[in-house]
Structures are given as C-alpha cells and as structure tokens.
C-alpha cells in the first residue's frame, strides 16, 4: 500500500480571460497554482475546498480533459502531460471519472446498454457482441442495478440509478484510478449513503484508487484515507484523515472544520466557531504572500510578504503556514 499510483508535481492551470484570440489579457485566472500531491495504490485521497478553489480543475487536469499550463502528472511512472492524444488512449482506460450531475453525464440518445458497451467495443476489451452484452449485465449487477436496465434510456432512471450507471461506465474500462468529481453532491442524502457504500465496496473488491473531490466535509471524512484541503488554487494542508480532522494545523482548515454543525443541539450551542472575514479573493488577482493572509485570524506581517511552502509540520502531516 505504499507504492505511489499518481504523483502530481507543481500542477499549474491558468485560463486566459477576455474573449478575442489575438487580444488575450495578460493576467489569467490562476485556477490551479502549484498543486502537488501523491496518491498511493488502493487509497482514497479526499480533496476538499470551497467552490472555485480549483479542485475540479485539478481533477480535469489529471484526466487530461484540460491540458495543464505547467507541472507534471505521473501516472504509473508515465508523465501524462508530455503524451499526445494517441499515446494517452491506453492511459485513459486506466484513469476514469465519475461526474457530479447524473442527469447530464449520460448521453440522452443512447440506452444504458449502449453506453456501457461502447468502451468495451472501442478499446477491444470484449471483442464479440454476445460477450459485450454479458459483460454489460455483469456491470449492471455489480453496481446494484438489474440486467434489464440495459434497454432503458437515461431519462427513464432516477438520479441514484443514473449515478450507478455512471459508476458502471467507469468500471467498464477496468481502471486503476477513478476521479470522483463530487459524485454524491447532486443526490438526496439517503441515496448519497448508498452510493458512498457502493464506492467503498467496489474499492475493496476491485482494488480501486480514488481521488474523491467534494465540498461536503462529513462525506470526505467517511470515505477518505487522507485528505487535502485546497484554497484559491493551492493545497494548504494535507494529512491522513484522523489527524486532519482532529488536529488541523492550518487556520483555513480550522475555520472550515469549525463550520461543520454538530448534530446535537447542546454541543452545537457551545462549540467554538471561527468565522472568516470577507470573501474568497479573485483568482485573477490573488493576494501577495500567503493567499489566505487577508482573511487569516492569526496573520503576521511576513504572511503578506512571503508565500509559505507546503512543509512537513509533523510526520506525514503537511501544511502551508508560517505559523503552524
């Protein structure tokens, strides 16, 4: 369990702003600005942060749906950033994705059977038609659906069922890594639990590795082995789940965790809350030094001048704060 499956080094993704091709503005949106982390084979890394902090963009870069501006993405030792579209094809089989919105992630003009059989055919995983139909039934059962769902269209299924189809589509490719981009945030709470359990069950049976992107801290706490916290395009803290939730070092992580309500009115009334001042600054003009300093309750003069690097504060507990 110590072998690294995915290593991300100094990943940067800038988006140009301003429409015209010839007159792109000089200041791009710094969606992801120097993100590094490792995912070991068989583990789940949770990636949390507010909307717009760059967690989805990070996932899309790993999937090579966006080409990074700079940085390296090593998957099984292969740098995906340097590969062309053709060379990426076999890698794409090994890195799959589950999307947030189960309504728009399935092609409305294809039946569930066609959706699941397509990758089997294109990648030559199951070359004959009968074999594909059998494999599709197997996949459907594996994610808790019925074989007869193969003939249905996506609009005939419920949100939870569609999300199961999305999972089955990812499994069809027999991947090693699945990027789960907010896979449960569009679902009802009761369905969320079912999908989370399914993901965990599949992980233990098939030895999958997950990058689990979410903004729901309790869901991330439940499923992750380690958790990374992102703020404004950077990782501010990364540690194993227990350490991060019980002894966070970064003031942003502390504020984030203090915002989670406790399901007990007496404890809830007494708990301490750190309320952050202001809004998340624009990724167009990130603050100088530590990007969190304008909102940080403990910021000092040097926080505005000098950007903190992610350093190992305790063993296997990394934080990007001068004062931690």
């Amino acid at each position: 369990m110590t072998e690294a499956l995915l290593e991300v080094h100094d990943l940067v993704k800038h988006f140009p702003v301003g429409g015209a091709m010839l007159a792109r503005s000089a200041t791009p949106v710094r969606a992801v600005d120097g993100v590094s982390f490792t995912i070991r084979r068989g583990e789940t890394l949770g990636l949390v942060g507010e909307s717009g902090c760059g967690k989805t963009t990070t996932g899309r870069c790993i999937l090579q749906l966006e080409r990074p501006t700079s940085g390296r993405i090593l998957f099984e030792g292969l740098d995906l950033v340097t590969l062309g579209e053709e060379a990426l094809r076999p890698v794409r089989r090994r890195v799959q994705v589950i999307f947030q919105d189960p309504y728009s992630s399935l092609n409305p003009r294809m039946t569930i059977g066609q959706i699941l059989a397509e990758p089997l055919k294109v990648h030559g995983i199951v070359p004959d038609r009968q074999g594909r139909a059998a494999r599709v039934r197997e996949l459907l059962v594996q994610v808790g659906l019925l074989p007869q769902h193969a003939g249905r269209y996506p609009h005939q299924l419920s949100g939870g069922q569609r999300q199961r189809v999305g999972i089955a589509r990812a499994l069809a490719m027999e991947p090693a890594l699945i990027v789960c981009d907010e896979p449960v945030s569009a679902l009802d709470v009761s369905i969320q639990a079912q999908i989370i359990n399914l993901l965990e069950d599949l992980q233990s049976r098939l030895g999958l590795t997950y990058l689990f992107i979410a903004h729901d801290l309790s869901v991330v706490r439940h499923i992750s082995d380690r958790v990374a916290v992102m703020y404004l395009g950077r990782i501010v803290e990364i540690a194993d789940r227990k350490t991060l939730y019980e002894a966070p070092v970064h003031p942003y992580t502390k504020a984030l965790l203090s915002a989670v309500p406790i399901p007990d009115p007496r404890l809830e009334a007494r708990r301490e809350r750190t309320v952050l001042r202001g809004e998340v600054p624009s990724a167009l003009k990130p603050p100088s030094g530590c990007v969190f300093h304008p909102r940080c309750p403990i910021a000092e003069a040097r926080c505005a001048a000098e950007a903190p690097n992610l350093r190992e504060i305790k063993s296997a507990h990394w934080g990007a704060c001068h004062l931690a």
Binding site: S105, E118, P119
Partner: peptide
C-alpha cells in the same frame, strides 16, 4: 460542455465517434 462528452473524451474515444455518436444526435 456536457459531462457526457467529457466522459467520452476521458474514455479515449476518437474524434469522429464523439462527433457522430455523442454530439450530432443531440
């Protein structure tokens, strides 16, 4: 921009297949 087109790209399908099977019918 629909996620199912992203899913097709992430599955390594060819351009022609994505255009004809996933975009044109819609």
């Amino acid at each position: 921009e629909m996620p199912y087109v992203d899913a097709a790209r992430a599955s390594g399908f060819g351009h022609a297949r994505i255009i004809l099977r996933h975009m044109l019918p819609n």
